[in-house]
Design a binder for these strands. Sequence first.
DNA 1: CTCCCGATAT
DNA 2: ATATCAGGAG
Length: 217
Amino acid sequence: MDSSTLADQKRRARRIVRALKKAYPDATCALRHETPLQLLVATILSAQCTDERVNQVTEKLFQKYSTAEDLARIPLTRLEKLIQSTGFFRNKAKNIKACCQTLVERYDGQVPRKLAELVELPGVGRKTANVVLGTAYGIASGIVVDTHVARICRRLGLTDQTDAVKIERDLMELIPKSEWIDFSHRLIHHGRQVCKARRPLCDQCVLEPECPRIGVG
DNA sequence: CTCCCGATAT
DNA sequence: ATATCAGGAG
């Protein structure tokens, strides 16, 4: 980090949390879903893909295949075609099917509520597990660190790390656990609308007072 | 570290 | 043309 103390960083992090809460009071998960299983599938599909496209794909997919049992039985090539437009479709199809097969075999088709169990599922890492636990179950297992959260937290100087797990560890020290779930949703919303990767709209940014803006990237 | 990969904005 | 999009596995 820099010469500022941990206490300084915590105070700054709380100002950022407060500004985000004021600016985006209703920010929530943008992946449309009706069940924890659907959110899990949508989150697997969201890797390197916009949430808008994931929602288009899942709307059709869940019309016919909405449960773990459905997706565990679906022919692989059929699933591949249904999710093709999200990219990485062979990996995602294989993972979704294997994941749902495991859920049927070990968890009665339900999504488990423990991080350690979730990350053992094919295609599920910490980011996906945190999304599902936080949004579907209200369990603050950690902080969702996706591409937006990573980028913005580096820009803000809340972390120097590039590895998602190390960024998450830094953020968990700085932010009270009661804020973890909403913080991620709000930061991701902010990343899509304002603090964008390519052309950040710094003139309309509510975090501008807290941002060093050194080499914006 | 590389690979997986289509769609869109710039 | 190229960077980027709610990453994870080998």
